[in-house]
Design a protein around this nucleic acid. Structure first.
Ligand SMILES: [Mn+2]
Ligand SMILES: [Mn+2]
Ligand SMILES: [Zn+2]
Ligand SMILES: [Zn+2]
Lengths: 135, 135
DNA sequence: ATTTATATTTGTAACGATTACAAATTTATG
DNA sequence: CATAAATTTGTAATCGTTACAAATATAAAT
């Protein structure tokens, strides 16, 4: 996918920083924090400011090409995948897995008459790998 | 229910502040923030410190009689209900509703081989009332 | 090409929620 | 009553985020 194109399509001027930040989000698929994005890009973009990372992510969210993931109440993570999906966080190794869920199952009958705009599903536990390695 | 008893059972000495804070959580069922708890109790307990509210909630969570609810990434809320349940937040009036969901539906087959410890379901949208009042 | 305007990035200061910490107070024990 | 232990309190420190204005880069006009 052409990132500059993708940004333009969503009314975002494709500056160097914006392209690099989106590229990181989209290719790593690791649900990074602001700090992680910054630390991973400042090598390649030595003048990068953390404020730019904050501004850019806010812009991405505004234009609808990025979403936030708040599994722990003390860290905000970012995701370039916009299709509805949930997340599993391993409390042992910290890895975050994307999980699918059937939206109908979650938006249950209790919400009849309610207008559902957004659903977040967060699961915590131990991943397969950590269980077999006894971490 | 006897709150002092409930705290004791969970290895928490039932001080005046602890009882009042738990009572607020349990009776209001409003998923309050630290600030809301503080503001609502400082009238009755003029010497109350916000630090005490923080300390007490941390203790409650530690002992397993309170859980956190993080729907918005910039505010932590607290809940005395410990049974697995989800939350609906109305983006119009701000009300938070408890919702039931079938755990089996959410902990889907994708998580086969994973050990699930905790599941959070957060739904945002407009509540029935706000829709009819066109808020 | 040079100037002028506009958009973007950057660095620093301000902010607010949370935590660390030590003093003060309360409660339990001898 | 005296002493020790637990709890609460107030203040300062911390950390993630935001506000803001200066600097830089990009686009438009002359
Ligand atoms: Mn994801
Ligand atoms: Mn609840
Ligand atoms: Zn793991
Ligand atoms: Zn509402």
């Amino acid at each position: 996918m052409n990132i500059a194109q993708h940004l333009s399509t969503h009314d975002i001027k494709p500056s160097y920083q914006r392209i690099k930040i989106y590229e990181y989000l989209y290719e790593k698929m690791n649900h990074p924090t602001v700090d992680l994005i910054y630390k991973n890009l400042v090598g390649e973009i030595p003048t990068l400011s953390k404020t730019t990372v904050y501004n850019t992510l806010k812009l991405f969210i505004d234009k609808g090409i990025t979403s936030t993931v708040t599994i722990e109440d003390n860290e905000v993570r970012y995701d370039a995948i916009m299709d509805a999906h949930g997340h599993f966080k391993c409390t042992s190794c910290g890895a975050i897995y994307d999980i699918k869920y059937d939206f109908k199952d979650v938006a249950m009958n209790e919400l009849k008459g309610f207008e559902v705009k957004e659903t977040q599903v967060h699961v915590k536990g131990k991943c397969n790998q950590c269980l077999t390695n006894k971490n």
